[in-house]
Every structure is written in structure tokens, then in C-alpha cells.
Write a protein that binds this DNA or RNA. Structure first.
Lengths: 252, 252
DNA sequence: CGACATGTTGAAGGGGATCAATGGTGGTGG
DNA sequence: CCACCACCATTGATCCCCTTCAACATGTCG
């Protein structure tokens, strides 16, 4: 399944460069990380709850989700990871998984062993900082999901999720992605928004003027309307801060 | 308001030691961090949304909360930080606040400037790792809140929150804290659980056999019943892994 | 004592869940 | 090429958990 590959972690480096200032040497270290390409099929655990992992998972294409569930077995998706995301960078520092990782559709990944990542962070504090920071952006997204589930109506929840995903798809670009791949079934959308698939179906109809959610992709017809409907404000994604304005970690 | 203080960050070090292996030298560096003591009064922003901070906030006593809100102005609490927590350690790496920080009751804090923390992380990779790891535990808590809001009934949400807080109060101790300070109003409890204060009031009555929630503290009368009601499983808090079983970051 | 926050209770309404079918659609194999 | 099947979307009818609105009670602190 997984085989050694001459790396292409360029998109991962691009992602880091969005929010951190890295020296040439540090950037090269990232690109030289060993990787193992693999496919993940939907509806089976790539990482199971409680499992110890020894690698992080970079998403090349497709979507990975973090899955939790209540005592009743009802599922709740806790995060969605799209192409360009390192889905479980946190596992470097917390190898025992606190939630399961599954693909939502067939997904191509690169597995990156923890060991060389840990060695890198010891050698280059600025990289440790960049990884830490990227994890904190994921945490900010998680906090917004809490607001979404706690204080927004069904339509707003869905609209917010779509706006968030659209923005993350095109991070770094100026213009919004008005069309993007989003291979989620309505049942999976329901698990991400804390709703029922039936209610998702009905709610999508009330949004039909502003978004078209198809089987494999989303078309945003009216960005402003959708953002208003979803109460969406992109600042929490922290993509608007110039890396050059960030502090670089102090050398010892 | 804030004045320089001969540090007592021992509880912070204790917290780190719960999950990370630190050398004597690293531990001393933590204890030697400069701090500024202060009080935070409830219902005013200690850190405002979008503000740039240059310090992290350690909770000595009381409770701090992260507050967000929807377009309608309805508030959603996104995290609660109790005594012993570094409430916004993430700000070291992400100084622009993505949510507001408020006290829920009068709270005593120690402010720790980012600068020396950043210098420390550059010098001691193991400390950077320990900080990063502690932030990831907060993220795991956040993920559980998503499950709570998305897939649990009102009674379960409240029960889960109380179990979580009880467990965090006594982290490191074997026995559960069956009684702990919890100075939240029912309205604040509602903001943490995505409910209405009216419904919190009614739901607390249905829990009256298992917990007694008073103005300033919580009494758990029947731990097992409460944990069952709240679908609570402490593993996500990651307090059950011996630090000695953890990898220490590789020296360069 | 008055003022104001907090807790408590009742009645009514609604947003979303639940239960139960039906309709599409794509993939597979005969 | 069609029959079949699995999965997904769609629709209707009914129910209920939680909200909303509106009082009233209690407590606490100047």
C-alpha cells in the first residue's frame, strides 16, 4: 500500500510559508523529509481511536475527517482536512490518537514519519514554531466549530462550513474559490454540522440560490449572501497576516 | 494593576511535568520566567478579539473563559481555564487573538511575557515541545466540546462539562475531585453548553440526584451516574500517560 | 432599604429529529 | 445491454426538545 517516494512536500512547505518565516535551510529540511505515498479508502479508520502513530498524514487529494462519537454511536466530525493539510501534525507531540481519522472519499496521502520531524524541530526552533503555529490555526478552526454548533441555525452552520472550506482551499490566493471539490455526502455533512441528513437535505434547498452543493463539488453562486447567511468572518483563519510581519523565533 | 512579582509558576511547571519529561535545567528556566500578577474582573475583556498580546496568562485562582459570539450577539464560550492553566499559551505563537478572554468571576492571574518564553523555546527544544503538547491537549478538549454540542442532549452536555472540569481540577491526583470551585452563573453555563439559561436551570433539576451545582461550587454526589449521563471518558485529557513513557525530543 | 443580578416557574411556539417510504444513480456482472 | 444492487437524495407526517416570552422570587451588596 505505502511505498517510499521521492518527496513532494512542496504544498506543505507552501502552507507553512503562509504563516511563518523560514530560512532556506529550514525550507530544504522540510522538502527533504521522507514520505510514503498511500491511498485511504472511505469509511475505514486510517488512524483508530487510541492508536499510537509514528507518522503524520499529509493530504495530497481528497478529504480526511476526524471522527468522534457519543455513547449512542452517533458520529460527529470534528475537523475536515483538505488537500494541502497535514491532517495530524499534532500526533508528533501527542502520538496517541484522541479521535479516529477517516477518509470521506478515496484520498491520496503522504505519510511522514515522526522521527525525522522531531529531529528537525530540535535542530531548527523556527520549524518547531511553524508546526506549533499551524496546529494552533487548526485549534482556532475548532473553536469556530464550537460556535457553529452551539449558536447557529442549521442553514448558518452549513453556510459557515462551506465558506470556511472555500477560503481554506484558496488560502494565499486573493480571490475566493467559488467552486471547489467537496466530496461529502449529505450524511457526512450532517455529521460535521451536528444535524440529521434529512435536515441537511431540506436546508440545502433553502440555500439553493446562493450555493449549489453537488455530489463531488460545491458551487458558490453568491459569496456575499452565503457569508452573511453563515455569519462568516475569515479572520480566525489567520491567513491575512503577512509572514514577514511575524516574529521569527530568537536564536539561542 | 499588574506588578512585577517573584514568580510562582510552580503550578505551571507541575502541569507541564504531567505530560512531558523536562531536565532540571529546563524546569528551572520555567520557574525563572518573569511574571506580573494581576486581577481580572468578570465581564470585561482581558484580551479583546483581534488584539495583539505580548504575554501569556496563567490562572492562579478563578476561571477565565474564551468568548465568541454569532452575528446575533449571542455568546458562546469556547474554553474554560481553571487554576493551574496557562489560558492562552497559544498566543506565544499566534499573538493576534481569535477570541476574547474574559474572567467569569474575579480571577487572579500571572502574566508571562512572550519574549522570554520565545527565547526559552529556542534554547530548549524540549520546552517548545512541552508547550506545543499542552496546547494540543487544549485542542483535544475543544474537539470534545464539538461532540458535546453536536451530538449530546442538554443533560449530557452539562454532565460532561462538569465531569471534565472535575477531572482537570485534580489532574495528577488519583481520586476524582467530587467537590470543586466552579463560580459560573447558569447563564454562563448556558453559554458554554450552547443552551438557554432557562433550560440549564430546568436541566440541572433533572440532575439533582447526581450533582449539586451551587453559585460558587459543584458537588458531585454520584460520580458514576454523572459520567454515564454525560458520556464522559477521560482518556482525551491525556493525563493517564506516564511522562516517563514519552519520547524526549532528540537533541541536535 | 433599593437596585440589580441571578435563579425559578409557566405557557406557547418552533426548529430540527424521527420514522417511513420513494426516487435516482452509478457500478457490477451475467 | 440490461438486471440488479448498494448507496444516496428526497419527501411527507408526526413528535419533542429546547427556545422564547413573560413574570415572579430570591439574594446580595452598596
Amino acid at each position: 500500500m505505502a511505498h517510499r517516494n521521492s518527496s513532494n512536500l512542496q504544498p506543505f512547505l507552501d502552507r507553512l510559508n503562509l504563516r511563518s518565516r523560514l530560512l532556506k535551510e529550514e525550507q530544504e529540511a522540510v522538502l527533504n523529509l521522507p514520505v510514503y505515498a498511500a491511498q485511504v479508502r472511505p469509511n475505514e479508520d486510517h488512524v483508530a481511536l487510541g492508536e499510537m502513530t509514528d507518522h503524520a498524514t499529509f493530504v495530497v487529494s481528497g478529504v480526511l475527517g476526524r471522527f468522534d462519537q457519543n455513547a449512542n454511536g452517533e458520529r460527529q466530525i470534528t475537523a475536515l482536512h483538505i488537500a494541502g493539510d497535514m491532517a495530524d501534525l499534532n500526533s508528533v507531540v501527542e502520538p496517541r490518537a484522541t479521535s479516529a481519522l477517516q477518509a470521506l472519499s478515496t484520498t491520496t496521502i503522504l505519510q511522514v514519519p515522526h522521527r525525522p520531524i522531531r529531529e528537525m524541530t530540535a535542530r531548527y526552533p523556527a520549524l518547531a514554531e511553524a508546526f506549533w503555529r499551524d496546529c494552533m490555526v487548526d485549534a482556532a478552526v475548532l473553536a469556530q466549530w464550537v460556535v457553529n454548533l452551539g449558536r447557529r441555525s442549521a442553514a448558518a452552520r452549513i453556510a459557515h462550513l462551506l465558506c470556511e472550506t472555500a477560503t481554506r482551499c484558496r488560502q494565499g490566493d486573493d480571490k475566493q474559490a467559488l467552486r471547489f471539490d467537496f466530496p461529502l455526502t449529505q450524511a457526512q455533512l450532517a455529521d460535521a454540522t451536528g444535524l440529521t441528513s434529512i435536515h441537511v437535505n431540506r436546508t440545502l434547498k433553502t440555500l439553493s440560490g446562493t450555493v449549489a452543493v453537488a455530489q463531488k463539488s460545491v458551487d458558490i453562486l453568491d459569496w456575499d449572501a452565503l457569508a452573511a447567511r453563515g455569519d462568516f468572518n475569515r479572520t480566525y483563519l489567520q491567513a491575512d497576516i503577512r509572514p514577514s510581519e511575524r516574529l521569527r523565533i530568537m536564536a539561542a
